[in-house]
């Protein structure tokens, strides 16, 4: 079965636990990265504050295949302080996005 990474980034606070836990799990050196958080904002859009963080996995991401085979969550999924990362079967991604029910959700298929 194929899986994807779903990020409910409306609640991503930019804590960077995904970056460091991925680095530690896969032994990624400091000049490379497995997942990286980008900040969008702080901006004022149409009179309202807008500030989002968005984690993006790199080509080094294998969705923590070994961890998941052992029945564990992916490193970023487990440690994310805001609990916004989920590894979801590809076929269920659309349904899960709908369940989350708001606009700020992305899916990656690394």
């Amino acid at each position: 079965m194929k899986y994807g990474m779903l990020i409910d980034y409306a609640y991503c606070t930019g804590c960077l636990s995904c970056e460091i836990s991925c680095r530690k799990e896969h032994g990624i050196p400091l000049d490379e990265w497995g997942i990286k958080v980008t900040s969008f904002g702080l901006d004022k859009l149409d009179g309202k504050w807008s500030w989002d963080y968005l984690p993006t996995p790199s080509t080094l991401c294998d969705l923590c295949e070994d961890r998941r085979a052992a029945g564990q969550k992916a490193a970023c999924e487990l440690h994310c302080l805001a609990n916004v990362i989920e590894i979801v079967p590809l076929a269920e991604i659309g349904k899960r996005m709908e369940e989350l029910g708001h606009r700020k959700v992305v899916a990656y298929l690394p």
Partner: peptide, 24 residues
């Protein structure tokens, strides 16, 4: 050799901030 969050912890449920993850 490894620091991970404990999913059974009633408050943090496995979540950890960067400082614990860099404990090693």
């Amino acid at each position: 050799v490894k620091v991970e969050g404990d999913p059974t912890h009633p408050i943090t449920n496995g979540r950890l901030c960067p400082r614990c993850l860099a404990l090693d």
